[in-house]
């Protein structure tokens, strides 16, 4: 099958890569607010297969959209890993919707729009742009320092992405954890 050729035999459908995790400030007072940012990319076969040729193939087989659910959780680590505490959790969905463009400026019959968690429908100009809109994520959170309490804390971001079966991918899920970050609250 053409779609399978896009993925190596032992390669998973997706891998969460290029994870960044930052906190500003990393040294704060109890009444301050912390700005946490988690960034990552979903790479692999799922990203490589998100191309116009397969959008068209999917559209022709009545498979008109791709829904990708993301979960980003900020965890406060404890000495025993299972006792880690959830500080903030965010679930959001991004969608690629394939449509019959009929746009004279686009030389293709089927094109994609991307719906993100920001409630704006995006019209990518290129396949690469469409992939970036769907698979490149940066999420920011604000939490009061008081939620962590006084002391030195180790935070990390846990990321999960989940999707269903389509013409260009099997169903699957990918998980990853960011590097940990030390935050001192005084």
């Amino acid at each position: 099958m053409q779609t399978m050729a896009q993925k190596g035999r032992r390669e998973p459908w997706a891998a969460i890569e290029k994870i960044t995790f930052s906190c500003s400030p990393q040294r704060a007072k109890l009444d301050e607010t912390l700005a946490l940012t988690v960034g990552f990319q979903v790479n692999g076969g799922i990203r490589r297969n998100f191309i116009r040729r397969l959008w068209e193939e999917a559209y022709d087989q009545h498979d008109r959209g791709f829904r990708l659910g993301y979960w980003v959780t900020i965890m406060k680590n404890r000495p025993v890993p299972v006792m880690a505490v959830k500080v903030k959790e965010d679930k959001f969905v991004r969608r690629g919707v394939f449509f019959w463009a009929r746009n004279p400026e686009l030389p293709y019959r089927v094109w994609a729009t991307i719906a993100t968690e920001f409630e704006t429908i995006l019209y990518p100009k290129t396949e690469t742009e469409a992939q970036a809109m769907l698979f490149d994520v940066t999420r920011s959170f604000e939490i009061p320092a008081s939620k962590l309490g006084k002391g030195l804390h180790t935070l990390e971001g846990r990321i999960r992405a989940k999707w269903g079966k389509h013409i260009f991918t099997e169903r699957g899920e990918a998980k990853a954890t960011s590097s940990s970050l030390k935050v001192r609250i005084e």
Binding site: R67, G69, V93, G164, H166, R171
Partner: peptide, 14 residues
């Protein structure tokens, strides 16, 4: 609607 979308994905995934 969001929940229906999620379940649609599950149904389409077998």
């Amino acid at each position: 609607f969001e929940y229906l979308d999620e379940k649609t994905d599950e149904l389409n995934s077998g």
